[in-house]
Amino acid sequence: MSPARTAVADPERLLIATFVAAADTLVEDFDVVDFLSTLAERVVELGFASEVGILLADEAGDLQVLAASHERTHLLELFQVQREQGPCQDCFTSGTTVSVHDLEQERERWPQFTPRALETGFLAVHAVPLRLRGTVLGAMNLFHEQPGGLDEDAGRAIQALADVATIGLLQQREVHRAHMVQAQLQHALNSRIGIEQAKGVLAERAGISVDDAFDRMRRFARGRNRKMADVAGDVVAGRLGTDDLPRRRR
């Protein structure tokens, strides 16, 4: 892990590399925590903050600490989340950037968070929302050991990083959803094919039509409260024979 305020030989290249990593959310082994941890470390390496923490809302809408450049930041973020108080919480709720140039002045605003942050060694903080139009996914917290604001260039770069991270996260959620549908589609197709195959197997063994074969399997499945696809699988595998699937008695 890099110490804060490391001089970077080529900040532009590092920035580009960060963008590329953010756009790379479509790869198979994309991991949200790795991605956000890298982002947090990069923001520190680029000299935009002493330390960085990133929080995302869970399904219930509660913020969770997903990544932090340093352990003490992690603890401070956890404290914010537990007390539901602090710049990150305000940023997430409002969906807008919260900038505090001098934390000493904000003891009343966050009576529990501010002393804790000062104690940790931070004098200024910037919370940037991870948002796309109306959707706020979470927030990125930039902590500074010196008082003061971000200059215009740094502000723009941070906002751009937050935007790319947001798009990456949204894409990843979409991909995850699509994965589930894909698995479901394959399962449904396989079930369907398996049933057709089983009709043929049973029709041949019992010397009956495929329609009668289907009828026998369906009655058996209903009688035993089993899924057709499972019964079909047993027929194809030879675990269920013609004797097990009696013809209709009228």
Partner: peptide, 29 residues
């Protein structure tokens, strides 16, 4: 779609393979 169910339109589109899978079942037996 509920689990294990194929969307009807997609199922209709793939219906032409049904007799082929049935015949495969017969040959397998």
């Amino acid at each position: 779609q509920p689990d294990g169910q194929l969307d009807e339109i997609l199922a209709d589109g793939a219906a032409f393979t049904a007799p082929i899978h049935q015949a495969s079942g017969m040959i397998a037996a």
